Computed example of a mutant assay.
Amino acid sequence: MFISSAIAATAEHAAEAGHHGPFYTQAEFWVGAAFVLVVALAFRKVFAAITAGLDARASQIKGRIDEAAKLREDAQALLAEYQRKQRDALQEAEAIVAHAKHEAARLKTEAEAAMEASIVRREKQAVERIAQAEAQAMAEVRNLAVDMAIAAANKMIAEKLAPDAQDLLIEDSIRGLSGKLH
């Protein structure tokens, strides 16, 4: 369009100037044609540079978009992995709590059984100690009674027996001891 309007303007200009003859013989035509050619060549180089710059920018933008898409995919994969790890950690925590509750119940049962056994054992020990104390008290009472009976018998014998009878009783007791000691 631009070229055709430049040519038309050159032709009109030549007609107005009073030049006759073919348009391509006129200097103005060649100046206009050279101008159009220079502008077209310059426009082509400028257009190529602009196009190359836009293509490079589009390539950079596409690279950034691809990188952003890759980063987004990586972030989604990482998020999914962390969500899975969180679920696993929650399940593990629930399992630990359940195990701890089970262990606590088991330990409570064992502690109750051990406490019961300890109470029974201590009660048995207390009964045995009481029985031992009773036996010891009975033995002490018996020994005391024997001692008192011997003392009373000695006193009675000393008061009521004659010295000859006492000697005879002592000799009898000594002979009786020799049979009991063997």
Score class of each variant (00 low, 15 high):
16 E>N: 04
18 G>H: 04
19 H>F: 15
19 H>Y: 15
21 G>E: 05
22 P>R: 15
22 P>K: 15
25 T>H: 03
25 T>Q: 09
25 T>G: 01
25 T>A: 11
26 Q>A: 04
26 Q>H: 14
27 A>H: 08
28 E>N: 05
28 E>Q: 03
29 F>C: 06
30 W>A: 14
32 G>A: 14
34 A>G: 13
34 A>Y: 12
35 F>L: 06
36 V>L: 10
37 L>G: 14
38 V>R: 12
38 V>Y: 11
39 V>Y: 04
39 V>M: 05
44 R>V: 03
47 F>L: 10
49 A>Q: 12
50 I>E: 04
50 I>Q: 13
51 T>N: 08
51 T>F: 05
51 T>M: 02
52 A>H: 06
52 A>E: 09
55 D>T: 08
57 R>N: 08
61 I>Q: 14
63 G>Y: 06
65 I>F: 14
65 I>V: 14
66 D>W: 01
67 E>W: 02
67 E>S: 09
68 A>I: 01
68 A>M: 06
71 L>K: 15
71 L>Y: 11
71 L>S: 13
71 L>Q: 08
72 R>S: 07
73 E>H: 12
74 D>E: 00
74 D>I: 00
75 A>N: 00
75 A>D: 00
76 Q>H: 00
77 A>D: 04
80 A>G: 00
80 A>S: 00
81 E>F: 02
81 E>V: 00
81 E>A: 10
84 R>K: 14
85 K>R: 15
85 K>L: 15
85 K>G: 10
86 Q>R: 12
